[in-house]
Nucleic acid binder design. Structure first.
Lengths: 210, 210
DNA sequence: CTTGTAGCATACGCCGCCGTACTGACGATG
DNA sequence: CATCGTCAGTACGGCGGCGTATGCTACAAG
């Protein structure tokens, strides 16, 4: 078939998708050909038709993941003109999409693998850069924007980690709403400083009133 | 020998120590008997003398880790009377001990393993609880202390994660000192709501003067 | 000197996973 | 109908890690 029939690519992407699923639940080591084949109801014969070897599957899964975590993810907030609301949206998304968070943590834990480490670095760098730009759009200078965006991003990631490692301890329900408000107040300054001397005023109100 | 000679336990702990090393660099899967034996200059024959099987080694390593991360770690800050300085010390330690941070992340990534998950949960819970107590000692009520301590702890963990996943992006040198100050200002409130006169005392931020 | 034992080495069988043939079913095309 | 490309099944060899069985050495006790 010369024409790119949609059915052709389906299988290859299904393998990559299944590989991402396996990573999310069992880490990179869980991406093994025969177990994945069993899970998909086929045998290795199918796999080695679509991919040269196991590493090619890992590569394909990584490309799929990178595209989703950068281009696609950012495209979904680019139409938000207000930088404040943009940050809030990113923050909210980071605290709700558990599957995506688990996937990131699993991949980050496997960054010893050279390809994985590369992709994780690129994704992290791009997220950080986008956050930094948003903070600059708030009126912050480059230096402060770098500090604040790193701070905020570390808290994003840390929340996912704590939520996974100590789910009982993590706030939920009404307490989570208070927690979320506290983080927003602390991580997004509302009044920009005229000069750097009164940076302490950025968070004048501290304690949750509720 | 009936008498507990100190030489007896040495080997067993060395195995556990090597297991922790392997975890820190290669995750839980890297704790394999034969590679570890090669690294220690012995063979499996030694291992299966000290341990029943691989899981027993994992268990021993976990116990060693848990003790170090809870009892021992907290004991090193218990003599600090000022809760503010106690939090600063914990924070500073979390941002400097890279090896310990990598170990935590590696173990947390393997919390699918039931024993590992249990220990990670206990360690996280204990750290969070200790932080919460410190915030309460600052004059905070129980509800706020829970929110703030979770916030601070998430940032602890997130910093380790970002430092590992995007080392190029993470602040270093003079920028790190600014970053550290920003986090301290944001994560430890200096003015308590109503009563105490210790606000002025807390206001004096001690900078990490390396 | 004999015996026992602690500690490690050696050799073996087993299993799970990788990768490579080779074969087979099926539809499209000539 | 014969042929070819697509996709999946089957069978095989190899490797690395686990666990066991057994042998070897040093040392202590009697």
């Amino acid at each position: 078939m010369r024409e790119p029939s949609p059915k052709q690519n389906l299988s290859a992407e299904q393998w990559a998708e299944a590989a991402l699923d396996a990573m999310a639940s069992g880490g990179l080591e869980a991406v093994s050909v025969e177990p994945l084949a069993r899970r998909l109801g086929v045998t290795k014969g199918s796999f080695y038709w679509h991919f040269a070897n196991r590493d090619a599957l890992v590569q394909a899964a990584l490309e799929l993941w990178e595209r989703r975590e950068t281009t696609d993810a950012i495209a979904r907030v680019r139409d938000e003109p207000d930088p404040f609301e943009r940050i809030v949206t990113l923050f909210k998304r980071a605290n709700t999409s558990h599957r995506s968070g688990r996937l990131y943590l699993a991949l980050a834990a496997a960054s010893d693998h050279p390809s994985v480490g590369e992709v994780v670095r690129r994704v992290s760098a791009q997220r950080l850069d986008y956050l930094r730009q948003s903070y600059q759009a708030l009126g912050m200078n480059a230096h402060d924007a770098r500090l604040w965006s790193t701070f905020a991003y570390a808290t994003f990631i840390g929340n996912q980690q704590v939520h996974r490692d100590a789910p009982e301890q993590f706030p939920s329900g009404a307490e989570f709403r208070d927690y979320f408000k506290l983080m927003l107040r602390s991580l997004i300054p509302r009044a920009m400083p005229a000069d750097e001397s009164n940076a302490g005023q950025l968070h004048a109100v501290h304690l949750p009133k509720t």
